[in-house]
């Protein structure tokens, strides 16, 4: 039981996809202009990650070694297309804000990375839990970056404004994304060293 639980919790700290593995940087930087956007992007990625992990763990034994990467990419792309259609139908506003980065989940290295490193070698249940764990870790990291950028950039958290006027706009724009991520990595390194 403890073993299964650790599959989920490892994504938070030990194998955090953003701050430890430093994977999937494009959506991390591009969609975290506010806490809400970061959270939504994280959840969208988690949806694809869990489903692709489940399917890949099921088909991995019968997929020939030579073509396994193209097969995995097709599986992932299928779920991304599914997600696109669902989001267009039920949450068109979110789909519009995240824009290009929804189809680009296909090329998020976290998903292919988990397929290669975990799902292809483990059972269905473990792979699903791994998807949940890494997905939650990714969602959490994106939300944290979003919160920091929203506070600095527009003086608000989740759209709730606690400071009058505009913040430092640069943090909502491109440079702020790189700077915030850089400094958060420093902070994470510092904390990790202490433990």
């Amino acid at each position: 039981m403890a073993n299964k639980l650790s599959l989920i919790t490892k994504g938070f700290f030990k194998e955090n996809p953003t701050f430890v593995l430093v994977l999937g940087m494009c959506p991390t930087l591009a969609t975290t202009t506010s806490a809400m956007n970061g959270l939504e992007m994280g959840l969208a990625t988690m949806f694809v990650l869990i489903l692709s992990n489940i399917v890949i763990s099921l088909i991995a034994p019968v997929v020939p070694d030579k073509v396994h990467i193209p097969v995995y990419i097709v599986v992932i792309a299928t779920f991304v297309t599914l997600l696109e259609l669902l989001m267009k139908a039920y949450t068109p506003d979110v789909y519009k804000t995240l824009g290009l980065f929804i189809p680009l989940i296909v090329v998020n290295c976290i998903i292919l990375g988990r397929a290669e490193a975990f799902a292809s070698k483990n059972g269905v249940l473990d792979s699903a839990l791994d998807g949940i764990g890494i997905g939650l870790g990714f969602t959490m990291s994106l939300t944290v970056i979003g919160i920091v950028r929203e506070i600095l950039g527009s003086g608000a958290v989740f759209g709730w404004k606690f400071m009058p006027g505009d913040g430092a706009l640069a943090f909502v724009m491109a440079p702020g994304a790189f700077l915030v991520l850089g400094y958060l990595l420093v902070l994470f390194n510092k904390i990790a060293k202490k433990n």
Partner: peptide, 15 residues
């Protein structure tokens, strides 16, 4: 980390 901060400064220049 320092690489990201460097890119941040480059991005500011490109702004």
């Amino acid at each position: 980390p320092i690489a990201f901060i460097t890119v941040g400064i480059m991005a500011m220049a490109f702004l």
